[in-house]
Amino acid sequence: MNSPLVAEKTAVNFIMLKVLAALLPAIAAYVYFFGPAILVSIALASVTALASEAAVLHLRHYPLRVYLTDGSALVTAWLLALSIPPLAPWWLIVVGTLFAILVAKHLYGGLGNNLFNPAMVGFAALMISFPSHMTHWTAPDVLAHSHWSFAQQMDFMFGGISPADSKLDAVTMATPLDTLKTQLHLERTVAEIQSSPIFSTLSGKGTEIIALLYLLGGLFLWQQRIISWHIPASFLAAMFGLAGLFYLYDPVHYASPLFHLFAGGTMLGAFFIATDYVTSPTTPLGKLIFGAGIGVCAYVIRVLGGYPDGIAFAVLFLNSAVPLIDAYTQPRVFGHAGKWFNGRKE
């Protein structure tokens, strides 16, 4: 027995459960706009994550009960499921989740030791290995040429069978970000492109509401002191600022900064992915640098790069810089002279 003898009740799994809870409103909107297939994806990812996590914990002689209930594998699973197209074949989400848990998390030492965000590693692996599957996004029900029932969606996910009267193309479409990029290459203006029915006030029909609910969930996490404001704020500010500069320079060929904030994975990335404790910096200044770096990289990749969105690669890129950022942004210690920015000499 050693002091302190008292402790706060908050445990790791309590934090992880709050993160999952904060995702629920956006998931509900997802179901509303795109049908219940996303729930199957999430369930599939969750089961795969827990099973693979349990297998590794067993091999590593870790106590299953404590580690399996820490909730971290579930967070990875949910974030990955929410990042990939909901009508993707079942094996896609399984392969992605396995890669995230086995390679990105446990090969690095398990909970607390991984350098890269597991969900984003899984996403990147899928994006590079199966690019065509990763770009078939479901169209919102209001826009789809034909409506698939839940049973038909399941037939497609698990058997690859499209209903007799409609092909996959009939229920999917490119995302607003993707559409914008490909159409811009066809020499059309932003205004022309955004007059298409898939666009709405902020970004895409349906997706903008989901993005708003991610923002809401993120604010809940901030209010609950699960995440600090530094990363989301600097992330969004950097993306808004950079997009704003391009927009002011040439509004005909660059979408508005507001569009970029609510399109693609910006909100999910800013509040739920970049804020992952394990793979983000620990110092306040470091968090600001990290978030801003992601915002800039993500914008550059999504606007100038070859991929439809850049959040995952931006996050992974900045993940690799975290040890460096931490080492050079150590705050001043009580009673020590020093500047606000206090780089450490090796």
Binding site: L5, G112, T282, V333
Partner: peptide, 29 residues
């Protein structure tokens, strides 16, 4: 009154300790 602490888990770098430290240290480091 003073239940024994639960099993220690790995550090997840949440920085709650750094936010609580009155000496402005980085306890996780």
């Amino acid at each position: 009154l003073f239940p024994p602490p639960p099993r220690a888990m790995p550090c997840i770098r949440c920085t709650r300790c750094a936010q609580a430290c009155p000496a402005d240290l980085q306890p996780q480091e």
